[in-house]
Design a protein around this nucleic acid. Structure first.
Lengths: 186, 186
DNA sequence: TCGTTATAGACAACAAGTTGAATAGGTGCC
DNA sequence: GGCACCTATTCAACTTGTTGTCTATAACGA
């Protein structure tokens, strides 16, 4: 139940409906997990059946009713239990890397385009993370924030996402370098 | 068909049986994809049905026969086609990050242990990658290798894995720092 | 000789994730 | 006035990935 734990962790930041949760997963939660809205709804049902959270229907004018979910005590306990379990290191699985691996000299332009694309995406992500970071720090220094904040988890995972994208940028730059060097060879 | 492409790419390094392939996935291929042997056997059957590779049975003395798979021309073409398709950036999905996100002060020791564990694992992985790199370079400088080598893909993905683990190490170190700072607060 | 590790696979059940579509009112823009 | 996007959720079908069990043989060391 990997997604489930991510959902429970996300709800630590406050109650939310499925839709709100999917928005949360699009931005801040994307640092540590990703999921489509369909997955989320399915998982919310499942977690509710297991008593780890409970939803109440909120009626709305002019738009469909929504179900807002809250963590139960059992849900919090479950999260604590999860933290104690060993976690396997995540394996890398990346289309772009498969493409680079398969590079045999004939499809240089296509590979180059794919890498440039990813580089672009990573830069955008990084900018978003910097923004989120500024919002979170709200003028304070990192040290001050880390000392005083109630929950440091969200900041640390954000730093994780930031470093991740940074590394992608480095790698892409290197790959482009190599590809361009080889252009002059042939 | 994401796994399929990884298998095809792995076979670019030479023909292999299911078992050999699973070994390959454990070491060098793990830089860009991961899969269990069960997944591999299933995928090999599928790829053969689609004509992207073909297997021939090799009889062995004293042990079960093995099927050795070779890329077909259709398989190579398919790989080239794949390279031209846009690839979505991989989403992060990591148990450890979920745990850190969920950190609420009460389970400091468990989180710490999980991070130390991961740090350890990353260091080991990094050492392995350095070894693979040395083997690949075989005394040559990186520049020389990149200029002369037939296929630079494997080296570049290896560098990807290397940078990835390096970044993990940085992040883990930072998290431990923060956790230990907070110890002195409470 | 017994247990362990490595080789080489097959099969089944289940969990997780993706893709595509449907519903239905609301807001903003040209 | 129409079109596109936003809110909010659900359903169905499918592909991927995980976990566990099973059958064999061979080499190695205690």
């Amino acid at each position: 139940m990997a997604l489930g734990h991510a959902v429970l962790a996300a709800l630590l930041e406050g109650d939310a409906s499925g839709y709100q949760l999917s928005k949360r997963f699009d931005v801040s939660v994307s640092n540590f997990w990703s999921a489509t809205s369909q997955q989320l709804y399915r998982e919310l049902d499942r977690l509710e059946r297991h008593g780890l959270l409970h939803g109440r229907v909120v009626e709305q004018r002019g738009r469909p009713n929504k179900r807002v979910f809250t963590l139960t005590t059992a849900g919090r306990d479950h999260l604590h239990g999860f933290i104690e379990q060993p976690s396997r290191p995540t394996a890398i699985r990346d289309d772009l890397l498969v493409k680079v691996q398969a590079f045999d000299g004939t499809d240089r332009d296509a590979i180059r385009a794919a890498v440039v694309d990813r580089l672009d995406h990573a830069r955008r992500k990084l900018a978003l993370y910097e923004q989120l970071r500024d919002d979170l720090l709200d003028g304070r220094s990192e040290d001050t924030y880390l000392r005083d904040a109630d929950r440091v988890g969200p900041y640390l995972t954000l730093m994780g996402g930031r470093m991740f994208e940074h590394q992608i940028i480095q790698w892409c730059t290197k790959v482009l370098d190599v590809l361009d060097q080889r252009l002059h060879r042939t």
